[in-house]
Amino acid sequence: MGVTILTQFPTENRTGPHTIDVLSKRIMALGALQQGQFLVDCETYTSVPQLGPQRTVHVLHNSEQPATVFSLLETGTKTIPLATDGLFDLLMMKMSSFYTSKKQTKAESKGPRYEIGDFCVKLGTVTVSSNFKGILVEVEYRPCVVPAMCWDLLKEFLQGFLGLSGPTNPPAYLQNRMQEIYSPIDTIHQYLEHFTIFRKSPGIGMRA
């Protein structure tokens, strides 16, 4: 598990599939090989009023860690991350009387997954309740585990691949954690940040 940077790529009046096509042509030209597909999804549950102050649980799955269910509990003051095995999904179903999900908020990012050298690149089409919302590009540099050490290197890769749309600063979530050892839950945090922004943004209105 290496350091992962998640960044949004502007669609600029192009359709989602067309943007993915442009990006995948670029990455293939750099010498990448496609290694299957990927999927990250997120479902959000809110507590019923009888439980006191409202709490939110985000349950996420990442195809890179297929046997793990990640969940983030927002209590309003802090966020508690939890990594569990697949049975957690069943537990959430059992708790449906305390935590209810809003079906129209199910967000997911899926698309092709590429490998190029030690990098792993994923081009995700983001949909919120099957409405197309935008493009998320995930780049992982697998040999390195400390974000501060390889941020410049990743920035160079991202700018070489995304051009001016590449990020100039580390993702907000990582900025306070640059010296810590990166773990899969950090990727999940970044996805949730982006999904939250996409949910609030008005839909582009195109079906993916």
Partner: peptide
């Protein structure tokens, strides 16, 4: 110890052939 963070002395870039 600066394998990932130091750029190349000659070309000034971090990556060449996707390697530091």
């Amino acid at each position: 110890n600066i394998l990932f963070s130091a750029p190349c002395k000659r070309c000034g870039n971090h990556l060449h052939n996707n390697l530091p």
